[in-house]
Structure formats: C-alpha cells, structure tokens
C-alpha cells in the first residue's frame, strides 16, 4: 500500500516535468532540470529512492516484507522478486538521471519555458513525498522494534481477531535477505546514475542486452503490446458491446418488445361487433376445454414456475 504513495508521487512528478517542458515527454530531450525545478527534483528523487526500496524509505519495508514472504513460500519467487526490484531501481534512476542531471538537451525555446510548476502541483508533491518517506516507518517490521508495527496497533480494533502471521522467518534470514537486496539495489542505482547522468543525445546506441535495458522504448512497446492495448481493447469491448449492446440491449429490448406486442395486440380491437362476438364464443369454448383439463394445465404451469 505504500506503493500507492510513491506511484502517485511519480506520476505527479512526471506530470510536473512534462508541464514544465511544455508537453515534451521524451526524457532524452530533457536533462539538467535540477536547477530549474528544485521541488520536483527532490520529490522525484525521493520517490525513486522509495520505489527502488532503499532503506529507510517506505518502499524498503514493504518490499522487504513482500520478498521475505516470497522467500518463505518459495526461493524461486524470491529470486524473481529481487530481479524485478533490480530492474525497477535501474530504470527509475535512469529516468531520474536523464531528466534532472547533466545538461539540458532540449531546444532553446523550451529552455526558456522551463520553470517550477505552480503550487497546485508542488504542494501535493511535497505532501506525497513526505508520506512516501515516512509511510514505511509505520509498517516497520518486528525486526527493528518489537511490537512497533504502528499500523497494526493503529488499526487494533479492526484487526483484533486477525490471526498472527502464519509464516515467520527467523530474524537472521530476514536480515540476510534484506542486506542482499539492499546492496544489489544500491549497486544498480549507482550503475544507472553513472551511465545516464551525462547522457548525450547523440551518444552511441547501446548494444545487445544493454540496448534492450537502456531503451525505454522497448519496455514501453512490450508494455503497450502485452498489457495496455489488450486491456484497452477488452474494456472497449465490454463498454461498447457487452454493456451497451448485450445487457442494455436486453433491458431496452424488453421495453421495445412490450411496445411491439402492444401494437400487434391492439389490432384485435377491430371495432367489428361480429368479430368481438366470435372472439367471445371462441374464448367460451376455450374456457370449457380448459376447465375440464385443468389438472394438466396446472401441472404445466407449476412446472414452469418450478
């Protein structure tokens, strides 16, 4: 749940930068924004640290808890988790470094346009940044301060009947895991920092795996193809076909069917007395027949209405 804080923070930070860049979204054309937008810079940095899971930011504890839990259930899951964490740390800092460090690579015009975002953006940014930093502490695991799981205490009336965590790793293992991930994360951060802080626009393209890793285009494309597009398509399908045509169609169709049958049944009322009397006599016959066969009819009706 701490995730929500820094995710929101990142989104807003990115929005703030794009705003400043007058709609430019490509971080290759940014750089050096540190001096133009200090607040955005700091908050963005905090968010990156948090999401990368650097202690003591909020992401650290939650990530650590998740990884510990994963380790408890299966080491394979844990390794994937660590790998994911490393990737996250790497690409976050790549973005950070490209955007805020180094020299400005945009056009002259954009450089003039650069400015700190209005308060509407910076205030929520700051609030979220504070939350992103401290939110971790309320979830500090028992490892650091026994019985200090503030969140649990704080929600004590709610969780009073919660069973204790079923699987607890020994503290030693937890320390070990924590240390390994932290070191790896920090290493990957440093790598990214070094690599991209002085990024130049015409720098030679990376080769091989570096190219894939470094190029956010691939990530975006994969993300686009695997998640975003199908998701959008699927929800579009639900919205336009299932909801509008199928469900609403049935609902409105019922109404239309009633109107249609109204138009048809109305025709029985022809205004001809002879016709009416014929109908009456026929119905009389039907009543007679129905009366002497009512047992079957009732059985049929009860079969319909279960």
């Amino acid at each position: 749940m701490t995730h929500a804080f820094f995710k929101a923070l990142l989104f807003l930070g990115a929005g703030s930068v794009i705003h400043a860049m007058d709609g430019q979204q490509d971080s290759r054309y940014m750089g050096g924004l540190k001096k133009f937008m200090p607040i955005t810079h700091i908050t963005f940095l905090l968010a990156c640290l948090a999401i990368a899971g650097v202690p003591p930011f909020s992401g650290f504890f939650s990530k650590d808890e998740i990884l510990a839990a994963a380790y408890a259930s299966s080491p394979v899951l844990y390794y994937f988790g660590v790998l994911g964490a490393l990737f996250t740390a790497f690409y976050m800092f790549r973005i950070y470094a490209m955007t805020f460090l180094g020299k400005f690579r945009g056009t002259q015009e954009q450089e003039h346009h650069l400015h700190e975002s209005p308060k509407a953006m910076t205030i929520p940014l700051s609030i979220l940044a504070v939350l992103a930093v401290v939110a971790g502490f309320i979830g500090i695991p028992a490892l650091f301060a026994p019985n200090a799981h503030l969140l649990e205490q704080f929600l004590a009336p709610v969780f009073s009947d919660l069973p204790a965590h079923s699987e607890h790793l020994s503290h030693g293992t937890e320390w070990m895991l924590m240390g390994v991930t932290t070191v790896l994360v920090i290493l990957s951060i440093i790598w990214a920092w070094k690599k991209f802080s002085n990024y130049e626009l015409d720098a030679t393209e990376e080769k091989g795996i570096g190219k894939v890793l470094a190029s956010k285009w691939y990530v975006d494309e994969i993300y686009d193809a695997v998640i975003a597009k199908p998701l959008l398509k699927f929800s579009g399908f639900l919205k336009n076909i299932v909801d509008k045509k199928l469900i609403d169609g049935i609902v409105n169709g019922t109404g239309r069917f009633v109107q249609y049958s109204s138009r048809q049944i109305r025709l029985v009322q022809s205004g001809q007395v002879g016709g009416y009397i014929l109908m009456m006599v026929l119905s009389l016959v039907v009543l007679f027949v129905a009366f002497w066969n009512q047992a079957y009819i009732l059985k049929f009706i009860h079969w319909i209405f279960k």
Partner: peptide
C-alpha cells in the same frame, strides 16, 4: 392483465 395493460401502452 395482458390485454388491458399491453394494449393501453400504445
């Protein structure tokens, strides 16, 4: 009910 209601709609 059928004749009365349905025809009234139109």
């Amino acid at each position: 009910l059928l004749f009365g209601n349905i025809t009234a709609i139109f």
